[in-house]
């Protein structure tokens, strides 16, 4: 199952994705999140220490998190700001940390958190606006490393077809 979180107000991107996923019969949850109430991660560490696996911030992200833990792929569609994804997109990634535990291990040469669930979703990004694509690809690789999954890449809005080829 694929989870797609659209933090932009542009539903044309998700319409295109919906149509193509229907053709290739891929199960997907598409969440239009631009008007949802999703705050930033407050860094309380409760999801690791006090209520393992559960976020202390009770807002619309909780339902998204419940879907992410069962997903094979997580895609975030985000506007950009200052050469990066904007805060709405970043908040989706920052709030995902309940899916890893605070226990640690070495994977290859670096420390990693131990996964909470058997498998974590591979992660992909579709960005709308000016940003450094090379940096975003590097960043996505790092995100995936620390989630113990794989990066599907960072794609410009104009490259939705390429992103779709990873989904179908």
């Amino acid at each position: 199952m694929i989870v797609i979180v659209n933090t932009t107000s542009d539903e044309a991107i998700t319409d295109t994705i919906k149509q193509q996923l229907a053709v290739c019969k891929v199960e997907a949850e598409i969440i239009e999140a631009s008007n949802l109430n999703i705050g930033h991660c407050i860094g309380c560490n409760y999801c690791w220490l006090k209520t393992p696996g559960e976020c202390a911030v009770k807002d619309d992200y909780e339902e998204i998190l419940k879907k992410i833990v069962h997903a094979d792929q997580l895609w975030v569609i985000s506007d950009t700001a200052l050469g990066f994804i904007n805060h709405k997109g970043k908040n989706i990634f920052d709030r995902v940390i309940p899916i890893i535990t605070m226990n640690l291990c070495f994977k290859k040469k670096e420390m990693r958190h131990v996964k909470r669930y058997k498998k974590n979703a591979n992660v992909g990004l579709i960005f709308k606006g000016e940003a450094d694509g090379d940096f975003l690809n590097r960043w996505m690789e790092r995100v995936a490393l620390n989630l113990g999954s794989k990066s599907l890449g960072a794609f410009k809005e104009s490259e939705v077809k390429e992103a779709l080829s990873c989904m179908c």
Binding site: H40, C41, G43, L82, I85, H87, K90, D94, V143
Partner: peptide, 13 residues
């Protein structure tokens, strides 16, 4: 935060 700046900093910036 997740390999880059915290979301709250992006929001402010």
């Amino acid at each position: 935060f997740v390999e880059c700046v915290p979301g709250i900093l992006m929001e402010f910036l």
